[in-house]
Nucleic acid binder design. Structure first.
Lengths: 210, 210
DNA sequence: CGATAATTTGATCAATATCAAATATCGTGG
DNA sequence: CCACGATATTTGATATTGATCAAATTATCG
């Protein structure tokens, strides 16, 4: 049992992005124009990426010429982590808007892992947190009713202070995460408020007892 | 650069469940009856789990007595991986059906990590594959039209042989993954077949060119 | 202070959920 | 090997609800 490992055990579970922030990267970040391609499927995988600004779309191109979107990476998120374990990319990455993207070279990561035994565990911790988050998001999508979906989301968010919730982005953005139109979300919120289930004051929500 | 690391780099990207299969576990697996609780939020996290049969529901209990489902773990899937990095569970785990669950002790994992430098990377590889898969599933849910959703799913599945796809479970189960009722899925399939976009023969689907 | 984004509400429509029911298939114990 | 119960597949009728289209008001950010 190595003490180092226990340093990683804690109860706070934040973003755990520290693993990537500590790595060396290509300076400065790449600037992509909307529509520009960062990499293509089949290309030798040499790096993973961190979106600083803008939005990147990952697309799986298909034999018949069509394609399916695999993921849309928003600002502050990492994408193509799986490239760490594959020798070539499995999808195309295209800038959906103008974007700034940090490039973290795979061999820099692998070299760091060799010298720092905690890095792979910190990576795993970050990925485990993502898996947990994604599973919860997917589960939310199984709730058909807009009202219930929004309410469940609010309940999941209301972390520390039981019924208090500070929003860090507009409902417009939250609506997209919920898989609803912003109109549907605003209506659900209005209904919940009408029923007394929640109270709203710009950027802040209080959940009622029931 | 350590050679060991490169052993992990490959292009096949299967299930990567090897990391957990190699670990020692409590014999025999736990047998849970439907409704039985495996662990509760706040309890000291001592293990992660592998569902052998049945279905486990992970629930985040809330202050007001209500709860939100975080995840439903089906047979052959691992759950509570995040417990590896936390000292207590953050949700309740309840058997939704009668279930068989393998218990993999955290200290066995941590001990193995200490002696086997590749384990944490194999763990990370598995988690990265899950993240990729979950992101893709979530993205599918953004497609409103049942027809398009089913078609995109089919296209994503049709891996090796371009347009050929062998199903490993009934459409009923696939419908749940897609977030659609089975009726909607069957109707979408019927429509796609009528249009000539696909051909079906029990447990097998052929995708057309367009 | 102007422009852009966010919030809000209304009307209408289309599509999927639901409810129902019939047939086909599969798996299993006798 | 066959019968039978449990699932899976299929199709129909209807209802509900969120998507859409529209537009007005309010906030926010340089």
């Amino acid at each position: 049992m190595i003490p180092i490992i226990y340093l990683l055990l804690d109860g706070t579970m934040g973003e755990f992005a520290d693993w990537i922030e500590s790595l060396p990267r290509q300076q400065p970040p790449l600037s992509l124009s909307a529509g520009e391609t960062l990499f293509r499927r089949g290309q030798h995988a040499t790096a993973i990426y961190l979106v600083r600004a803008g939005r990147m779309r990952l697309i799986r191109p298909l034999e018949d010429g069509s394609s399916v979107t695999i993921h849309v990476a928003e600002a502050d998120s990492v994408f193509a982590e799986a490239a760490l374990f594959a020798d070539h990319y499995h999808c195309d990455a295209v800038a959906e808007t103008d974007a700034e993207v940090e490039v973290i070279a795979k061999n820099a990561i692998l070299a760091t892992i060799a010298s720092d035994p905690t890095l792979s565990l910190r990576l795993a911790r970050n990925l485990a947190a993502q898996v947990r988050d994604l599973r919860a998001r997917l589960e939310l999508r199984n709730i058909r009713s807009a009202r219930e979906r929004v309410l469940s989301w609010l309940r999941l968010q209301a972390g520390r202070v039981p019924g208090e919730l500070q929003l860090d982005r507009p409902w417009t953005a939250i609506a997209a995460e919920l898989g609803l139109t912003h109109e549907a979300v605003y209506r659900a919120l209005a209904a919940l408020e009408r029923e007394g289930a929640i109270e709203r004051r710009k950027g802040h929500v209080r959940l009622g007892k029931h």
